[in-house]
């Protein structure tokens, strides 16, 4: 969409620039990145200078914000059409497109540089790649090309704990990639629950989200399948010693609840043209619970390793 079609309706405030960075996604990214950083310290005994750890965490936040700004720059045409996204800074006319792109590119450079200064080239390189993954591979290529957009694109959001781990140790062992896998398999059921609610909007702008291309029934089945994969993957930290008793209890309880939501969803009419309010409410509740699930699961990792409560079930 051209700038002429996006008239400057009002002057941007600091909140507009903050919203450009997708702060809610940023919170999840920072939280999981920090959990990876703390878990790496807990597992290896390698400590990071507190100020360096804080700057590395800030770099992850800035990198996430940069990717968000690039995403909003590229997607401003479809954002303007969809009701859910029409109030975002660019379609609302508060921030010009080119400013969003400039902000995204500058912040990308600054975040990668800060990560390198605070930790090492591996963490900086992974951060750079994750920004590229979200901003280019997912946003510019996958999102409008395939119903698997969320599955493959989910990799971008799964990088933060690996980056946090690399920042501390300078390498990425199996435990870091297990944390990656948890977020990777969590993303499809999380996002598809939302897309059951918003599939008409995606259809309006021809974005091939799964409910648009394959229908709500297939989407509900896929949510269940990915949740069935996610639950055992979330238990892998127990086998490697990364997760202890607290994590185990959390993973079992949260996994069982997530699975219960997915089973109820597959038996519901959520997303169907004839859907009742109850089905849509269930999809919304599943989406909200999925956010809580990830926060709580990584919160358990954080608590165990930061508070000295890590009692693994197996020897490490």
């Amino acid at each position: 969409m051209t700038d002429a079609a996006l008239p400057q309706k009002r002057y941007a405030t600091a909140a507009d620039y903050l919203n450009l960075m997708k702060p809610r996604i940023m919170m999840l990214v920072v939280f999981t990145g920090f959990a990876g950083l703390v878990a790496a310290s807990g597992m290896t005994g390698i400590t990071m200078h507190p100020a360096m750890a804080a700057i590395a965490t800030l770099a992850v936040a800035l990198g996430s914000g940069a990717a968000g700004a690039i995403n909003m720059w590229y997607d401003s045409d479809i954002d303007a059409v969809m009701t859910r996204t029409s109030t975002r800074p660019i379609p609302s006319g508060a921030v010009p497109r080119e400013e969003a792109l400039a902000l995204g590119l500058i912040m990308s450079g600054v975040s990668v540089m800060l990560m390198w200064l605070a930790s090492n080239w591996l963490a900086a390189g992974l951060l750079a790649f994750s920004i590229f993954y979200y901003g280019v591979i997912y946003t510019m290529w996958l999102k409008r090309a395939t119903p698997q957009n969320i599955v493959i694109g989910g990799g971008a959001g799964a990088f933060p704990p690996v980056i946090g781990w690399a920042a501390v140790t300078g390498n990425t062992p199996l435990d870091a990639w297990i944390l990656f896998a948890i977020i990777f398999f969590w993303t499809p059921p999380h996002f598809w629950a939302l897309s059951l609610l918003a599939h008409k909007e995606y259809a309006k702008v021809s974005v091939p989200m799964l409910p648009v291309t394959h229908g709500a029934r297939v989407t509900r089945q896929q949510i269940l399948i990915y949740t069935l994969v996610l639950v055992p993957v979330s238990l892998l930290p127990l086998a490697t010693g990364l997760g202890g008793w607290i994590y185990g209890a959390a993973a079992l309880g949260l996994g069982a609840t997530f699975l219960a939501y997915a089973i109820r969803l597959v038996r519901s009419d959520a997303g169907d043209a004839t859907s009742t309010g109850a089905g849509m409410k269930l999809a919304r509740n599943t989406f909200v619970f999925s956010i809580l699930y990830l926060f709580a699961l990584f919160g358990a990792v954080l608590v165990e390793h930061a508070a000295g409560l890590h009692f693994p079930l197996t020897g490490t």
Partner: peptide
């Protein structure tokens, strides 16, 4: 803020010898 952060990382690196 960027200048301060670069300065902090530089000072810590020089004091600890990291990297």
């Amino acid at each position: 803020a960027f200048v301060v952060l670069v300065m902090i990382t530089t000072v810590i690196r020089l004091n600890t010898g990291i990297g």
